[in-house]
Nucleic acid binder design. Structure first.
Lengths: 192, 192
DNA sequence: CTCCAAATGTGATGTAGGTCACGCCCCCAC
DNA sequence: GTGGGGGCGTGACCTACATCACATTTGGAG
């Protein structure tokens, strides 16, 4: 399916736009292709865009002073990713975004999003809906991190996103769960 | 200051409404007063409203099977609180909301919020802005929970919200940090 | 096919924070 | 005043997970 179709489908689940409106909306996106391992946003960058994933898989992550990586989000097709803090507040990136697999994305600048939200009321509604979902999901993850052990969190993650199991190496899963790769590896080790 | 003034000030920082528009907006809110310790939302309730804090301090929290409490949010004046997951998705509450101190709130129903968002484009913009802030703040907290130890998180919290130190007992601070009250208490114990 | 790097498994040991138990203080309701 | 419950400190011990070290497997580039 075409990138445009995928976006149209996705947006169409939440709001109705006429074909002309959607064409206008879509005209603000730029399609970009990236190779596995390629960086889209790096720590310290100026962040101008958010990215709608058409194909492939991205990760957004934070690297701490000890070079330990924590993954904020895996972004699969129809997910949106960026360093939203830097994007909204016009600060330098503290979050990295790169490609776990080859990927195609649709790129929308902060300015164009705000322009579109102003011009087309339904678009503003769409982005409110999108952020609501992210907000609620992040709150749930925060609670799960405090309340559940690694094994439970791992199984929840795989239940929610089974496709990750095949695409994403375990060390990255561990970095998402906030645990060392060794501990994750030992979860299903036979009793000694 | 009047509840209406406080809300007007808060909303006015983000969007411009005419006086008539704001009066109309405000007419959908109900003011409510609660006593210290009183519950606003309890686990299992149907959740109809979100709450804008005019005075006092609320907490939203989750209780797990072992009756351990995890605090999602302290809500001070001009903050919004609810079980947003239940509210948006029309499910039963899994999050509780109650009063740490006597409190006055402005209550807005889910239906009225959606109606206002539809009728007044700026209102939709306001709520998008509000959720964006919550989303970004929750992501930061998630990273901090994975990356920083208790002492650091405690000091960050007090730096960000110094007023909590005087209002909120330490066992609740611990429940926010995701740590036992004993550990929090030992943070500044003299070396043995 | 071959080789190297990335991914993964696993043992030994260290440590932050949890849990349980107990005691004190303070404040407010009666 | 006094009794009781909430808030808080602290000792003893426990546990989940981190860290370091090294071995083994695997898959993709040449």
């Amino acid at each position: 399916m075409e990138a445009k179709e995928i976006l149209k489908n996705h947006v169409g689940k939440i709001i109705q736009l006429t074909d002309e409106q959607f064409d206008y909306f879509f005209s603000h996106f730029k399609i970009q292709s990236f190779k596995k391992g390629q960086a889209i946003i790096s720590d310290g960058d100026t962040v101008d865009c958010e990215y709608f994933v058409v194909s492939g898989c991205l990760k957004s992550f934070f690297i701490n002073d000890d070079l330990k990586m924590y993954i904020l989000q895996f972004a699969m097709p129809t997910w949106w990713a960026s360093d939203f803090n830097a994007l909204y507040n016009h600060t330098k990136a503290t979050i990295n975004l790169d490609c776990i697999t080859d990927a195609e994305v649709l790129c929308l600048s902060n300015g164009d999003r705000e322009k579109l939200c102003k011009e087309l009321h339904p678009v503003e509604h769409f982005f409110r809906w999108r952020t609501n979902r992210g907000y609620v999901a992040t709150q749930k993850r925060l609670l799960s991190l405090m309340n559940n052990n690694v094994k439970y969190r791992y199984e929840e993650l795989l239940k929610m996103y089974p496709e990750l199991y095949n695409i994403v190496p375990k060390n990255l899963i561990a970095a998402y769960l906030g645990v060392s790769r060794e501990t994750l590896s030992r979860l299903y080790a036979p009793e000694k």
